[in-house]
Amino acid sequence: MLITKDNIYDTHKCRLLRKYELTEHESLFLFRFEDPEVAQNWRYLPGQFVELSMLGYGEVPISICSSARRMGFFELCIRNAGRVTDRIHKLQPGDIVGIRGPYGNGFPVDQFHGRDLLCVAAGLGMAPLRSVFLYAIDNRWLFGNITIINTARYGKELLFQKELEAMKDIATAENIAIIQSTTRDPDWPGLKGRATEHMDKANVDPKNCAVAMCGPPAMYRGMFNYLVDAGYDPRYIFVTLERRMKCGVGKCGHCNIGTATSWKYACKDGPVFDYYAIISIPGLI
C-alpha cells in the first residue's frame, strides 16, 4: 500500500538497522520505518521498488528484496555504483534515510497461486527475485514445486549465494530446487553455465508453472526461446526491467520504454512485464 504525504515526492524516515556485506560491491540493508503508523500499514509486492533518498546526494530507485510477509521492515540489496549508492554504503546502523514508495506493479503473485514457481536470476537480478522466492516460501502452501536458478559471472558475484546454500537442507523436503551457477569462473566448484543450460534440473511442470525472471536482456532472449519451446504458458512468464526511474511516479520520463504503439513508463506500467507485453514492444530486449 502506497502511503504518500501531501507531496508525492516527500519521503518517510527510515532507520538502518543492519547492514550485511554480500559481495565486494553489494550489501544488504535492513530498514525500519520511524513513524509507527507507516510501519504498521506499509505493504508491498515482490518486484516493487522504493525511491531511497540521501539528502544532499540524491535519490535512487532500489527494488525491495525482502519477503512481503515481514511487516514494518524491508530489505534492500544495493550495489555501490554511483554517487548516491556510494554514500548509502557508508551508512552505519542507526542512520536515517528517506523512503517513498513502493512503486511499480510488482509481480502478480496472486496469479501464481496454485502453480509451480520458477525464478531465474542473473547478476543483480537476484535482488527482486529474492522477494518473490521468499514470498513463495513464506506462503509455501499456495505454491506447487519451486525452482530457483541463480547465476552470475563469478562465484564472488553470486548474490545471496550463502543464504540459498543454507536453505538446501530443507529444500529437498519442501520440493524446492536451488540451482546456483557461474558462467565464467574457472575456480567455482559448483555448476557452470547459463540458466538455460540448467533447465533440465528444474522440478517444475511447464504447463502449470509461473516464471519470474530478472537479468540482462540477453538472458531474456535465450530464456524466452527455451521456455516457449518447452511448453511453458507464456501468460505466466514475467520479467522485470531496469531503467533509470528518477521519480517513480511516471512524471520525469527517464524510464520510458517502448515504441509508438506501446509507450510505457517502466516505473508505473512496469517494471514487471509479461511475455506478450515484451514481444509487443519491438526492440525492447
Binding site: 544532499g56 540524491g58 520525469c252 527517464h254
Partner: peptide
C-alpha cells in the same frame, strides 16, 4: 515534452540544501 531531472544542492554549511528539478 515534460522530462525533468532532479538534483540536490547542498549548502556550504553542510546542514541545509535544496532539492531542485
Amino acid at each position: 515534452c515534460r522530462c525533468y531531472d532532479v538534483k540536490d544542492l547542498p549548502a556550504i554549511n553542510q546542514v541545509n540544501g535544496e532539492r531542485v528539478r
